[in-house]
Design a protein around this nucleic acid. Structure first.
Length: 219
DNA sequence: CACGCGATTGCCT
DNA sequence: GGCAATCGCGTGC
């Protein structure tokens, strides 16, 4: 994907990543799924953002080039963000939930659960399932053959999705800003079911034709 | 170098 | 719903 996609306002990128793909090569197989929940974190104007107080040694990659990733540790876990806007801005999209598609047996093992809602329904769970940690901080998935990151419109995996917007989860500052986005009714979205307009039981239906386009993710 | 806390998760009531 | 675990990082002494 062209950097122009990520060099846009963060809430726009957050919406357009829904229905996209995050997958990663690990232990000889691809592990990942379809992005169903994101949050936008802005720059120095957003008190909830790690960039709020400017550049520090640990948030440096959040100020990196658009489309690269910022992986940070929290509560002995990790979360993955995709950097947005021009280099040096310090804004990013937190990927909060995936619908599991590829490498589910390894997800099950790493998450120690048979419940697929406990594999990738939260930013810490995603990183544990996919084996993402600080070693990956700052890399650019676009140029790394071990990664696949693709926005929703580019995948063509999903025809139409209904997007619901709410405040972000777990923040103590700017808690009212509507910067969380998710596929309404999708069973893998984290947080309260009551935020959904429809019952949270649905899975995105992916056509055979669309899946075939990403057949390499099965190898 | 001590201390407090967090863009989380899991377990308990 | 509440709350503790856990650990890297930022702050301040």
């Amino acid at each position: 994907m062209d950097d122009a996609f990520y060099d846009r306002t963060t809430d726009q990128v957050a919406r357009d990543l829904l229905g996209g793909i995050l997958s990663k090569r690990d232990r000889g197989r691809w592990i990942g799924g379809v992005i169903v929940e994101t949050e936008a974190y802005l720059s120095t104007n957003d008190p909830a953002s790690h960039a709020h107080r400017g550049l520090t040694p640990s948030n440096t990659s959040m100020f990196g080039p658009p489309g690269s990733i910022y992986v940070y540790p929290i509560h002995a876990k990790h979360c993955i963000n995709v950097v947005t806007q021009a280099s040096g801005t310090g804004s990013a999209v937190l990927i909060r939930a995936l619908q599991p598609i590829w490498g589910t047996s390894l997800m099950k093992r790493r998450r120690n659960s048979h419940d697929d809602r406990r594999w990738t329904s939260g930013p810490g769970m995603i990183c544990q399932s996919l084996g993402i940690d600080r070693r990956h901080d700052g890399i650019d998935p676009e140029v790394d053959p071990k990664w696949c990151l693709m926005p929703g419109p580019a995948t063509g995996l999903v025809n139409k999705i209904s997007i619901t917007t709410t405040p972000r989860i777990g923040v103590s500052q700017a808690k009212e800003l509507p910067l969380r986005f998710f596929v309404d009714g999708n069973r893998y979205v984290s947080g309260r079911a009551a935020d959904h307009k429809r019952p949270r039981r649905e899975t995105l239906k992916i056509s055979e034709a669309a899946l075939r386009r990403f057949g390499f993710l099965l190898s």
